[in-house]
Simulated assay, not measured.
Amino acid sequence: MLIKEVMKKPIVVYDDDDLSNVIKLFREKKISGAPVLNKNGELVGIISESDIVKTIVTHNEDLNLILPSPLDLIELPLKTALKIEEFKEDLKKALKTKVKDVMTKNVIVVKPEMTINDAAKLMVEHKIKRLPVVDDEGNLVGIITRGDLIEALI
Score class of each variant (00 low, 15 high):
residue 1 M to W: 00
residue 2 L to T: 14
residue 4 K to Q: 08
residue 5 E to D: 14
residue 5 E to F: 00
residue 7 M to N: 03
residue 9 K to A: 14
residue 10 P to D: 06
residue 11 I to S: 04
residue 12 V to I: 14
residue 15 D to V: 09
residue 15 D to C: 09
residue 16 D to N: 15
residue 18 D to N: 14
residue 19 L to K: 03
residue 27 R to G: 07
residue 30 K to M: 04
residue 32 S to R: 13
residue 33 G to P: 11
residue 36 V to T: 07
residue 39 K to H: 07
residue 41 G to L: 09
residue 41 G to V: 08
residue 42 E to M: 02
residue 43 L to A: 09
residue 46 I to M: 08
residue 47 I to R: 01
residue 54 K to A: 15
residue 56 I to Q: 03
residue 60 N to I: 00
residue 60 N to R: 00
residue 60 N to F: 00
residue 62 D to P: 12
residue 64 N to Q: 14
residue 66 I to D: 12
residue 66 I to R: 08
residue 70 P to Y: 00
residue 71 L to I: 07
residue 76 L to C: 08
residue 77 P to T: 11
residue 78 L to R: 13
residue 79 K to Y: 06
residue 80 T to C: 12
residue 80 T to D: 09
residue 82 L to G: 13
residue 88 K to W: 03
residue 88 K to Y: 08
residue 89 E to H: 06
residue 90 D to V: 07
residue 90 D to I: 05
residue 93 K to D: 12
residue 94 A to H: 06
residue 94 A to W: 01
residue 98 K to R: 14
residue 100 K to Y: 11
residue 100 K to L: 11
residue 100 K to D: 12
residue 101 D to H: 05
residue 101 D to L: 03
residue 103 M to G: 05
residue 103 M to D: 06
residue 108 I to M: 06
residue 109 V to A: 08
residue 109 V to K: 12
residue 109 V to H: 06
residue 110 V to I: 14
residue 118 D to V: 02
residue 119 A to P: 03
residue 123 M to S: 04
residue 124 V to W: 02
residue 125 E to W: 02
residue 126 H to V: 08
residue 127 K to G: 15
residue 128 I to D: 11
residue 130 R to C: 05
residue 131 L to R: 05
residue 131 L to H: 02
residue 134 V to S: 04
residue 137 E to S: 14
residue 139 N to K: 13
residue 139 N to C: 02
residue 143 I to S: 03
residue 145 T to D: 08
residue 148 D to E: 05
residue 149 L to E: 01
residue 152 A to F: 00
residue 153 L to D: 11
